[in-house]
Amino acid sequence: MQITVTVNGVTYTHDVEPRLLLVHYLRDVLNLTGTHIGCDTSQCGACTVLLNGKAVKSCTLFAVQADGAEITTIEGLARDGQLHPVQEGFWEKHGLQCGYCTPGMIMTAVDFLQRNPNPTEEEIRHAIEGNLCRCTGYQNIVRAIQYAAEKMRSGS
């Protein structure tokens, strides 16, 4: 089936098998390998991307469902060489170790901060329940998101 999607501002049209998962479309067709796969059961969130601005697990979506959508992947988050405040927060606060969960974690945080610009620690921990990290114990991820929230609020 033919689909047209806009990914990180570029519009693509491809003929895809209906069973092709969005994550494999991004990785294997568009070669956008920043979106990772860490499980088969929609638990780990490593594959999280923004679909029309909302965080979704691209392993739990067929590419055909995204037909007509605007998608942002981790590769499209930085603008004009400027890191997104969430990316910056992860770097500043040591919010990653092996980096495998990081793209998905960042995309979830981006969606979350759109809806809750001034979250408590508890709210942050709840918001990232769909993203598993095995390295950090989450403490510095929480700090990274707090850093980003503050930076985004101050509008710089």
């Binding site: 956008l32 390998t33 920043g34 979106t35 992947t73 981790i74 590769e75 988050l77 930085a78 890191l83 990316q87 992860f90 770097w91 990653l96 980096g99 990081t102 793209p103 960042i106």
Partner: peptide, 8 residues
């Protein structure tokens, strides 16, 4: 980190 937070 720069490569890991940008999906590279």
């Amino acid at each position: 980190d720069p490569r890991l937070i940008t999906g590279r």
